[in-house]
Design a protein around this nucleic acid. Sequence first.
DNA 1: AATGAATGAGGGTTCATTCAT
DNA 2: TATGAATGAACCCTCATTCAT
Lengths: 195, 195, 195, 195
Amino acid sequence: MGVISGSGGAPARSRALTRERLVASATTLFARHGVHAVTSHEIARSAGVAAGTFYLHFKDKQELFRKIVFEALASLKERLQKATAGGADPREVVRLRSAELLSFAEERRDLVRILFGRKGEAASLGADVLDELIRWVEADLRARAVSLEPAVAAQALVGMWARVLVWWAELPREVSRRNVLESLIQLQLSGVIED
Amino acid sequence: MGVISGSGGAPARSRALTRERLVASATTLFARHGVHAVTSHEIARSAGVAAGTFYLHFKDKQELFRKIVFEALASLKERLQKATAGGADPREVVRLRSAELLSFAEERRDLVRILFGRKGEAASLGADVLDELIRWVEADLRARAVSLEPAVAAQALVGMWARVLVWWAELPREVSRRNVLESLIQLQLSGVIED
Amino acid sequence: MGVISGSGGAPARSRALTRERLVASATTLFARHGVHAVTSHEIARSAGVAAGTFYLHFKDKQELFRKIVFEALASLKERLQKATAGGADPREVVRLRSAELLSFAEERRDLVRILFGRKGEAASLGADVLDELIRWVEADLRARAVSLEPAVAAQALVGMWARVLVWWAELPREVSRRNVLESLIQLQLSGVIED
Amino acid sequence: MGVISGSGGAPARSRALTRERLVASATTLFARHGVHAVTSHEIARSAGVAAGTFYLHFKDKQELFRKIVFEALASLKERLQKATAGGADPREVVRLRSAELLSFAEERRDLVRILFGRKGEAASLGADVLDELIRWVEADLRARAVSLEPAVAAQALVGMWARVLVWWAELPREVSRRNVLESLIQLQLSGVIED
DNA sequence: AATGAATGAGGGTTCATTCAT
DNA sequence: TATGAATGAACCCTCATTCAT
């Protein structure tokens, strides 16, 4: 018995649509409860499909989770890059990236939680997923030839971002966006950027 | 048996010993595999006691985990405080704390992993455990009246520490301890400390 | 499409073709892995048709399996009968039948495996399929009025054939065909023990 | 809720007893329905224990099945050997073995069905289990230096035994035991065809 | 006639936890 | 206090089968 979809029957839905609904449901549920606390049945039910349908689209729960995480990561990196497309001034780069990070946290609260969040489970995937982001940041730092050890600074920066974004993604807030942004920028500016 | 129980303290000592063995085994296992991947049976076996004994000492797995996490947190805070017992100079405080953090990561790799680590499961406890550490840092920052928003800076600092410590706890390393320490200090000094 | 359907037989021919492909695929797969280990999807895929098409041709997997088994059985009986069409001499009948059995095993390895094979699943059909073959052999023995109890001898003969054929169907062999044939014949003619 | 054992609680039963009950239940069920048609839940229920208890004693259903099959095989071989302990006369050996086989079929109907039976699933274990029995018979034949190809004769003999035993294990019968025994002996001694 | 997405019952297995001894 | 066998709820996943297109 279809729990949500009434009687209509799913065959009318296109494969792609079903898949997207599963991804959307899973994203929400993972963000809210963490991978371990969410069952494939729940994801299916929340997407309005039968339990077995889940496995028509994904090998297992892990695969779906992995996909969500890596797409989130890719999206984040892309936004960061686009945000600083033209600019070359280091200070400006920090400003623009920080603003973009905050926007990302506001727009994609679910993804932020999945990537960096309370349940921290993004890391439960084979290797630490964040490593990808870290390596990206590290390469960027090396290119800028900052005085700091890039390996250390990359870990530090990503750690900083992660906590601040998760924190910021949880509303309601008593601190103004402007204050958060300024603090975030200043933390990086005087720390990472050369004088 | 029970013939020479002396002052009555022997049974208690034995009980305490069993408990400690359970805690030690659990700490190692949690650090290595994460809470979810470790069963109460495994902890008991690794401690050399029967499965049921586990529940004579802890209400459930969660309680044991919580205890380990909070003790680790307390220990970390205590070390940080002791390390800066006398000093007042902000720059010196940062120096001393950073050194202490690195030492902690070296001496208690298991605890670092449990608190901040890959599996990130410390956060799976009801509320975010790190919040306690964050609030402590936040209070400290407020007391120093830094120009940054303390709420934001506390998140950032703890996030930074977490990643760097976990990273540092995983050997082998190609970066010298000295370099790591200097980078860590510089990141905080120019970022957090007033000019 | 459908432009030159000639005498109207084309669709029927196409349908029959699809069916045959399903039968052929299933035969191969059943022989290789056994009924339980083969899914209707696999049969369809291997036949180059969609999953649903399977059920347009067969009520269910069991029906298809049953059909394959009974056709195999009919084919085997027919070959045995044809091989001894004219002959009446009992010894000659045994010779000819044994040779035919070996040929069958060589030509239809798949069917031999399905009927008598490792997975022994021919028997998983409601009643024991081999019963049909056994009754046929039993009737034959009764007609020849051998001194043995026909019911027992029929079981024994079919059992003997089954094992030897399956064994022979699995190549490569170190025993020559000639030796196998002679042994098989002698076993039926005069038992295992030397006088 | 214990389905069979009322309320008493299983802890009173010894581990070995529970295990035996599981083995006994499984043997009966496997003999009756075949491995695939029997679930681990059914075995547990029929043994009067909870579903999970099954896995306290056996890694999985396959392992239990394997154990039953190999014990049955060992038991059969042992009986055959004991039955012909002293004798050396080939004809006598055949007589004694045949009688023992029939007794085995009468006393252990379940094992006979599992080993050779309708569902023939003993063979679903990795390699063909009967191979063990066959190799044993083959070695025996080689030792006796019969004129037949031992490899072929061993297959034939075991095939013959298998069918006859399974058939004989299924009651009621219209053929007298005496007749069955005599036919079985004669078949091995002197083949099917009269001189 | 063919397609292929969807269904959903059910099986195997794990494991936190209990409790008689 | 400790033991360890037993419990049973729950989860993941498969697959025979259906049905709208």
